[in-house]
Amino acid sequence: MGLQKIITAMPALLQGAGLTILLTLVSIFFGLILGLLLALGRLSKNAFFDRLSQFYIWLFRGTPLLLQIFFIYYALPTFTPITFDALPTAFIALSLNSGAYLAEIIRAAIQSIDKGQMEAAKALGMRYTQAMRRIVIPQSYRRLIPPTGNEFIALLKDSSLVSVIAMTELMRTTSLLSNSSGNAVYYIPCALLYLAMTTIFTFVFSKLEKKYSISE
């Protein structure tokens, strides 16, 4: 019955899933960079950077992602000359949002490293940034991987929210197919595809964790 329909729709669904993965990978990548900067701000002795990071995290964790997407897409152009198309909006909103969550993850991981490591590095003549980059941050990787994996999975699912600005990722592809055909069967392969993606990435992260735990 529906099987034939699903098979014909598969290329479209896979393409949607491809966009979902792309959105997640890119957003996690920029989210990690942003999160690292925010975490360093939170750990900095400079009160300004600390406050600035705190404010950012408060703002992006305290409002719904859906609102952030609408805000960038619809509200920003009304009072600034800045306009973004749907695709950049999706990348920006997801990156900014995951940056706030990753900041707290990274901060916790860095803070969990023994203070003696920074002291030993400093006693060897390293400056703060050198010690952070070469000694402290690399040690936080292993502790960073499991919560980052969780954030990745959450983001993969939350990326479905950008369907509201007409991004044809997996979720929107599915609902378009159902609406046009009047048949909701497409939600079954959609669910299976999400499950496949989350399962694969969970596996990848557990492999990564193993790889980084050799020295401990």
Partner: peptide, 21 residues
Amino acid sequence: VALVCAELGMVFQRFNLFPHL
């Protein structure tokens, strides 16, 4: 200051070796 401090080697009670290296 950092240069001069690097002329002082320090050995800690708890070694503080870098475990990832």
